[in-house]
């Protein structure tokens, strides 16, 4: 599933990196609001679901080569976060749904969390 398709399924809006979202495949999913935990436990190609919107989320996503970030609960990133995401070609999606529902929908569509070995 691509980032653009997933956005539609969770009723989200792409707020940054729209062009990049169209063809980008999601390989797995991760949900956490502790960025140190994300750095330690996510996998390349994951769609990351979080309520954090500080500009550091872009750095974390770049570092771990994540597919995209989903901001839950209607959160919209601030200008610095948006600008950085655009510059880094990182899709950022905003949805009104809470984390639990976003994860549930994506799971039912076959996206899975991947355990660290």
């Amino acid at each position: 599933m691509t980032v653009a398709e997933a956005t539609e399924r969770i009723g989200g809006v792409i707020v940054a990196g729209a062009v990049d979202a169209v063809g980008r495949e999601i390989r797995g999913g991760y949900a956490s609001d502790l960025l140190s935990d994300v750095l330690g436990n996510c996998h390349e190609g994951d769609l990351w679901v979080t309520m954090q919107k500080h500009v550091n989320i872009v750095a974390v996503a770049q570092l771990r080569e994540l597919a995209a970030i989903v901001l839950v609960g209607g959160r919209r990133p601030d200008a610095p976060t948006l600008a950085r995401a655009e510059a880094e070609h990182l899709p950022v999606i905003s949805t009104d749904l809470p984390t639990f529902d976003v994860a549930g929908i994506l799971y039912s569509l076959g996206i899975r969390g991947r355990r660290s070995v």
Partner: peptide, 14 residues
């Protein structure tokens, strides 16, 4: 500290 510490919450110090 992982919880409520800046590195835990934000991954790194901006």
């Amino acid at each position: 500290r992982e919880g409520f510490g800046i590195i835990g919450q934000l991954g790194m110090i901006p």
